[in-house]
């Protein structure tokens, strides 16, 4: 489970960033995320939807303990990320659209590296590796350098790397953003499979097709603030327009 309460993240901004924001902006800080509250439950897919620059990645980085909150709190699998970040990370997998793999390692080395960082014992690792490599079809290229693999193969390795330690919580930051349709499908399947395994899943996207395909719960973020938070069914029932996309645009424009 992930519990986010009154989460705020404030960044100092440089002179150059201020110039880029135009004459209307005069402050020296910006709230990338402001007073955000939501809960991601096990066995459900929580979708964080928002336009580019809305604060999705910042929110997920805060959950993944890469950034420290300026205000509010986050609990991952029962651990406060500010007080016990390492414990929270032990129970979490993180996947982005960029595969985040080392080109000069082999899939075998890559996955083993993360297993070791997660303190997996040799027996458990061996069993889990066999399970995942078979499921994802990695065996055939397990000894080849990652740099020489196709993007589809790389994404499979990336998935194995993310869930090798069988995490309770999986964070997907725009996982399909830079992928083709075929490779994106493997991610969609992974998210569905994680749901079936009763894991807590949060994923960010700006693709409406994925929202309707996967979401159990939905939060729409715009300019760092939540403008919708509820179940996907509630969202559909409250829609004032014909499509999810139109409703999203309406809400963003109204905010």
């Amino acid at each position: 489970m992930i519990t986010v309460e009154h989460l705020t993240k404030t960044f100092k901004i440089s002179r150059q960033q201020r110039r880029e924001m135009g004459p209307g902006f005069s402050g020296s800080t910006i709230d990338a995320v402001y007073d955000v509250t939501f809960v991601c439950k096990p066995g459900r897919v929580f979708t964080l939807l928002g336009p580019n620059g809305a604060g999705k990645t910042t929110a997920l980085r805060l959950i993944a303990t890469m950034l420290k909150p300026s205000g509010g709190s986050i609990t991952v699998a029962g651990f406060d990320v500010a007080k016990a970040p390492v414990e929270a990370r032990k129970r979490m997998g993180f996947l982005t659209g960029s595969t985040g793999l080392y080109d000069r390692l082999t899939p075998d080395e890559m996955v083993r590296y993360y297993a070791e960082l997660h303190d997996m014992d040799a027996q458990t690792y061996k069993r889990r590796r066999e399970e995942l490599f078979t499921l994802l079809g990695i065996h055939d290229f397990a000894g080849r350098r990652i740099g020489k693999l196709s993007s589809g193969m790389k994404q499979k390795v990336s998935i194995a790397r993310t869930i090798i330690h069988n995490p309770d919580v999986v964070v997907f930051d725009e996982p399909t953003a830079a992928l083709d349709v075929v490779t994106s499908r493997s991610i969609i399947e992974l998210i569905k499979s994680c749901r079936e395994q009763n894991k807590t899943i949060i994923f960010s996207t700006h693709r409406m097709g994925e929202v309707s395909l996967l979401s159990d719960d939905l939060a729409i973020i715009h300019k760092g603030r939540l403008i919708f938070n509820g179940s996907y069914k509630d969202f559909q029932s409250q829609m004032q327009t014909a499509s999810v996309e139109d409703e999203f645009v309406r809400l963003v424009e109204a905010a």
Partner: peptide
């Protein structure tokens, strides 16, 4: 640049 730093920072390591 390769995006591997981001994933490394989510590993349970200081």
């Amino acid at each position: 640049e390769r995006g591997t730093m981001e994933t490394l920072l989510t590993a349970p390591v200081s």
